[in-house]
Amino acid sequence: MLKVILWRLIGAIPNLIGVVVITFLLTRALPGDPAAFFAGQAATVEAVEQIREKLGLNKTLPEQFIVYLKDLARGDFGLSLSTGQPVATEIIQRLPASIELTFAGLLFAVAIALPLGVLAATRPGSWIDQLCRIITTAGVSLPTFFTGLLLSYVFYFLLGIAPSPLGRLDPVFMSPRAITGMYLIDSLLTGEGGLFWAAFKQLILPAITMGLFVLAPLARMTRASMLGVLSSDFIRTARASGLKGSTILYTYAFRNALLPVVTTLGMVFSFLLGSNVLVEKVFAWPGIGSYAIESLTASDYAPIQGFVLTMGVLYVLLNLLIDLAYALIDPRVGLEA
């Protein structure tokens, strides 16, 4: 098992290197003046020159890359021009909000998609199968930002059951003491029930918006893989052994059907992290996505670079986690490594 983990860790290294190289190239090797990018549109000629000096843009590309790596190693992502804060600090401050939202969205999607896929596969041709088919085709067509707006119109403006779709917490509440930075977890740790509820209500709509987008691929894959497993030889054996329907469905079929679903989680996270930006904008969610958008409008490049790098690294790590989860469920993986 340890060997498997080690192999996967080593396997993730080229991707991490790729992410760092691409992020570097995005700013240095493209047409245009990187110094001007970093300085922002309002910068004076002197300021641009100063930045050119500071970034070492007069050096060769490989030399610049070494400098970039050294900065990264020290946790230096540069300074944000609009706030004057180090980019790394701001990203670390805002990251928990994005992570909380992403996982809430994933949780919602999984909670709906897996049962839906299983039900559709066990009752082919039934109304639930048709429903599954409609949801999986329509779901991938939903522009997240539009779904978010529709949901807040219906649940906030029309029905009035959702809180104002702005931010993580109603202004009457104080945010909980930062432990993990995730409000739901922190408020539970500090034992503030009212606060937890307020943060939870605020999270529901954005999380559903994100979840709806990835529900479709998850349900589609669950249905297909469950159908495949249910017609396999070992399910016939389980039935011939008189095992209970529930045992056959969960212990035998579902666990096997989960394997391809875990694999699709990689794509699902790509969707989730990407749509994060859009959902954060719609719901004024103070995560790293809205940080990136604020910086875009201010032509403040260092934060965007930091954002792309953070997302890339985060995604590589999530894929690593998915690989490890897969290895945990499937005993056959260890052999191939």
Partner: peptide, 18 residues
Amino acid sequence: GREVSMIFQNPRTALNPI
């Protein structure tokens, strides 16, 4: 499985792989 049991061909796929 108790009174009447059955075994199949292709035993490798007839057992739960995981």
